[in-house]
Amino acid sequence: MKPFCFADGQIVPTASATLHPTDLGLIRGYGIFDFFRTVDYKPLFLDNYLDRFIASAERTFIPLPYSREELTEVIYELIEKNDLKEGGIRMVLSGGISENHFSPGEGKLFIFAESLIFPSEEKYQNGIKLLTLEYVRPVAEIKTTNYALAVWHSAGWKKQGAEDVLYHQGNYISESSRSNFFLVKNGELITPDSNILLGITRKYVMELAGGAHVRPVTMQEIRDADEAFITSTTKVLLPVTQIDDLKIGSGKPGPVSLGLLEKFRQKVGGLALTDK
């Protein structure tokens, strides 16, 4: 964490930020968040992230007592105060203190500035492994703070040499725990259409690719795929070369994945993905 954050309606030392112990964010795990990068002191895709954050607050019935303009002003002030040329901004809105300890109350807004750690260059060159897991995130279209299963499960991924999990329900794939998922077949992108968070990086990658087939994706299609990759703010576009014991395509990152990654680097600029 960087030295300064936004809490209690003002910019304060990050170490002094507090949350009441009966806040629903703590006792029920109920809250929302969003996270985006800064590149050369500018927040990347800010309008898209604010759209999603404000919509998430409305859909979770948590009051957000700040306008888009006020949020934007705070974000830019935090970037300057923390000298955040290349880094991350995390917005968190807690579920609030509730009279019945269950219904959403007046949420408390925090905005933090953070350093970023990208995956190693080796992972971009060699690809990563995912493990399938039958699960659908609650209210998957909203970026809630409920990552209990993923956090609990993560120790097991590492023991099996995996980067993350790939969620599915029955025969249909949805997403990774913190990323969107794509297949490539005959040069065309395919990505699931339901039980997913509509990722901002996902959206931008589809624009770079000139579109994608957004539709139900089956487990069988993994076996027939030429390439696969995941997208997120902190991973950008990370090739997937193995799912469980199955090798994807040639077992190496493919030309479509690497080409889109290079396009993203050229368009966005900023922090090199090889930085650790």
Rank of each mutant, 00 (worst) to 15 (best):
residue 7 A to E: 01
residue 11 I to D: 13
residue 15 A to D: 14
residue 24 L to C: 10
residue 29 G to I: 11
residue 31 G to K: 09
residue 31 G to M: 07
residue 36 F to Y: 15
residue 41 Y to D: 14
residue 42 K to C: 14
residue 45 F to P: 06
residue 53 F to S: 05
residue 55 A to K: 15
residue 57 A to I: 07
residue 58 E to P: 02
residue 59 R to I: 04
residue 64 L to D: 12
residue 65 P to Q: 14
residue 71 L to C: 12
residue 72 T to P: 07
residue 74 V to F: 12
residue 76 Y to A: 02
residue 77 E to H: 10
residue 78 L to F: 09
residue 82 N to C: 05
residue 86 E to M: 06
residue 95 G to V: 05
residue 101 H to G: 11
residue 104 P to S: 09
residue 105 G to T: 03
residue 114 E to H: 12
residue 117 I to R: 14
residue 126 N to W: 02
residue 128 I to W: 00
residue 134 E to D: 15
residue 136 V to N: 07
residue 138 P to W: 11
residue 138 P to H: 07
residue 139 V to Q: 14
residue 140 A to E: 07
residue 144 T to G: 12
residue 146 N to Y: 09
residue 148 A to G: 05
residue 151 V to Y: 13
residue 155 A to D: 08
residue 165 V to A: 15
residue 168 H to M: 05
residue 171 N to H: 09
residue 174 S to V: 03
residue 177 S to R: 03
residue 182 F to R: 06
residue 184 V to W: 11
residue 185 K to I: 05
residue 187 G to R: 04
residue 189 L to M: 09
residue 191 T to Y: 08
residue 195 N to E: 12
residue 195 N to T: 00
residue 197 L to G: 06
residue 200 I to E: 08
residue 200 I to A: 04
residue 207 E to F: 07
residue 219 M to Q: 14
residue 223 R to I: 10
residue 224 D to Q: 09
residue 225 A to Y: 03
residue 226 D to H: 04
residue 229 F to S: 00
residue 230 I to A: 01
residue 235 K to V: 00
residue 236 V to K: 00
residue 236 V to W: 00
residue 237 L to N: 01
residue 239 P to N: 02
residue 244 D to M: 04
residue 248 I to L: 04
residue 258 L to S: 11
residue 262 E to Y: 01
residue 262 E to F: 01
residue 263 K to D: 02
residue 265 R to A: 09
residue 268 V to G: 06
residue 271 L to R: 11
residue 274 T to E: 07
residue 276 K to D: 10
